[in-house]
Design a protein around this nucleic acid. Structure first.
Lengths: 155, 155
DNA sequence: ATTCGAATGTAGCGAATGCTACAGTTGTAG
DNA sequence: CTACAACTGTAGCATTCGCTACATTCGAAT
């Protein structure tokens, strides 16, 4: 059982149970190993969380990849509604639960959470930018605007 | 030392240290009492949190009251920018830190947090509604729209 | 076959958690 | 003065937390 074998199982547990109050022993049990081994493989709980956040960001990107229609939206408003329709799917709810955990962790000043949040935001902005109309005057600003709307609506 | 004497001190500690990982002994120390007495006055930690959330919502309303200019905005967009300018003040940062804690708690299904979030949302919606232009065609929808923008921008 | 390092199990440490049992110590009503 | 109820301090309990010490197993390289 290596890091790579463990991460999917740990991620599944975190998706189901939340990230903020995840502790080593339940995580280990969910992955069929022991707290002892989690520390062995990841060095510390912080290391585990950092690895998990990175892995979860990858999962999120993959989920977006499969759920997103290929083409570009007709307008910014159209893009917003496409993204809203997709992220409203039940499959995405766990990701948003995690997202709020991460945001709260950022507000508390947690470094790993800040890094993860930055990475995920960049990921999302890139995605949106690629799905805006090709003739959008300022794609970066447009993506930020779309993201603002989506985050607000999610709440 | 009654509930009413304790709550402001507890609230101050929570504003400074966060809500999610607040525990009885540090809270008690910050309020100059003991965990024993907190349980005595509030019944349980859940009772304490519920009382604190209610008190903090009151604090937030009062803070809005003093910071908000009296009149109505010229337009929805104008209203958004007024609120953004005010909530960007350093005095409001601790409230938003708490807000994220509450949102994360809601995502985790915590009942007290859900109630508090609902109350605070209603409070905010009322505030915004009262500051929209008087000729707004649909003040309730307008308030929701403004709030969406603000929450999105805060992130 | 021996050796060596990676991987794993067992047991536990010290700290923090929410909460409780018990024993006072008040202040006040009769 | 007495009695009773509200209040408070001390000490602890059971649990969980992240983490470590120690011992063992096991496969591969020499």
């Amino acid at each position: 059982m290596s890091r790579e074998t463990l991460l999917p199982l740990l991620a599944a547990h975190v998706m189901a149970q939340g990230l903020n109050d995840a502790s080593l022993r339940p995580l280990a049990k969910a992955a069929g190993t022991s707290d002892r081994m989690l520390i062995y493989h990841f060095g510390s709980k912080d290391g585990l969380i950092a690895a998990l956040l990175e892995y979860l960001a990858g999962m999120f990107a993959a989920a977006l990849d499969t759920a997103f229609p290929a083409g570009r939206a007709a307008s910014r408003r159209d893009c917003i509604e496409q993204v809203l329709a997709i992220t409203a799917q039940p499959a995405f709810q766990p990701f948003f639960r995690l997202w709020w955990d991460i945001v709260a962790g950022c507000a508390a000043g947690n470094r790993a959470y800040l890094d993860a949040a930055g990475a995920i935001m960049d990921l999302l902005l890139g995605w949106i930018e690629a799905h805006l109309p090709a003739d959008d005057p300022d794609p970066m600003a447009g993506a930020r605007l779309v993201l603002t709307q989506i985050e607000g609506a999610q709440m």
